[in-house]
Nucleic acid binder design. Sequence first.
DNA 1: TTAATCATGTAACACGTTACATGATTGC
DNA 2: GCAATCATGTAACGTGTTACATGATTAA
Lengths: 181, 181
Amino acid sequence: MLKHGILGLLNYADMNGYEILETFRHSLNHFWNAQKSQVYRELNSLEDSGYITGTWIEQEGKPDKKMYSITDDGRKELLDWLSEELKETARIPLLMKTFFLGERTVEENIEFFNRLKESYKVRYEGFVAADTSSKEYGDELQDGYRSMFWGFTISYGRRRARMIMEWCDECIAALRNGGSR
Amino acid sequence: MLKHGILGLLNYADMNGYEILETFRHSLNHFWNAQKSQVYRELNSLEDSGYITGTWIEQEGKPDKKMYSITDDGRKELLDWLSEELKETARIPLLMKTFFLGERTVEENIEFFNRLKESYKVRYEGFVAADTSSKEYGDELQDGYRSMFWGFTISYGRRRARMIMEWCDECIAALRNGGSR
DNA sequence: TTAATCATGTAACACGTTACATGATTGC
DNA sequence: GCAATCATGTAACGTGTTACATGATTAA
C-alpha cells in the first residue's frame, strides 16, 4: 500500500526520501500517515524489485541525497495496482472502543463523545481551509485532472468529519435519553 | 487493539478461541476483521501477561478446548484502555488509490466509483437488516446498556456507507463535468 | 546559542496476512 | 461419500511503530 503510494509520487516527479516524506506530510497525511523508517525501508525494497532506481547526488552545504526515479516496471506495477480490485480491511479503532464502552458510566461516555466531536470539528475546519489551497496544489502538479483526485480525497475527509460529528450527536442523545446506569 | 477486543469479550463471558472468532465474525466483523492465527497468538500473549487464564476442557465427540477467563489484572487493563485517549492512525486505502487515479481515463474512473457505490449500497442494506437483529444481540448480552453500544457501531456503519455513496455521486458528477482526458 | 531544516538511516518489537497442517463427528 | 462444524495451532512473511543515532548549515 505505502509501496504504491511511493510509486505514485515518483511517477509525478523524481524525489529523494526526504521529499517523499514531506509530500506525505502536506498532501496525503489526512488519509495516510507514513513513518520515516518505513519509507526508507520501502525505498530499498522498491529498488531491489527494480521498480525504482536511485542515484546519489552530492550537494554543497547540505548532506548528500539519493534521488529516485520510477522505472518502466514500476510504472506497470503502479497501473496494475490501480486497476486491481480495491481490498478494504475493516479496522476502525474508534468502533472497537465504542463497542466496549458499556463498562463505563453514562457521564463518562457522554464526555467521550463530546471530546470526539470537538476533535472532528477542528479537523472539519481544517479541511475547509485545505480546500482553498487545492488550487495551489493543482498548480504544483501542473495538471487539473490529477489535482481533481486530490480534491476528492479532501472532500471525503470533510464528509467523514461531518458524519462523525452527527454520529456523536446521535450517541449523546441516546445516552441522555436511555440513561440506565 | 485486538488485544483489548479479546479482553472485552472475555469480560462478557468465558470463551475459547473458536468462540472468540465466531463472536468477531457475527458482531465485530464490520469494523474489525480478526485473523484466526492472530487471535490464537494474542491469547497466548495475554495469558503470558497474566490478563487471562486458560483451562483445557475435555469433551466427548469433540476436540478438547481451552477456555479462557479474564483476571483482575485483565479487567484493569481493559478499563485503562477505555479511559485512555483514543489514538486514530490515518490509513484509508480507498483514498490512497483515489489520490492516484489521475493515471487512468475518465471512463475507467467513473466505472471505479460506480462499482464502489454499488458495493456500499449492498453493505448499507446489510446494516438495515442488522439493525433488526440488534434486539437479538441485546437479549444475548442480557444487558440493554451494553447492547446500546453495539447499536452505535451499526449506526456508524450505516452512516459511513451512506456517506461513501454520496461521495461517489459527487466524484462521478465531477468526472462527467470537468472531463478532460 | 539554540532551534529548525536538510538528509540519511538501523534495531527491535508489535501487529497483520497467507498458507499450511490435523482430525473427529454429524447431517445430507 | 462429502461437506460443514468444532477445535487447535505453526511458519513465514509483510507492514507499522518507537526509539536511537548522526551531523552540517542557517536564521532568530
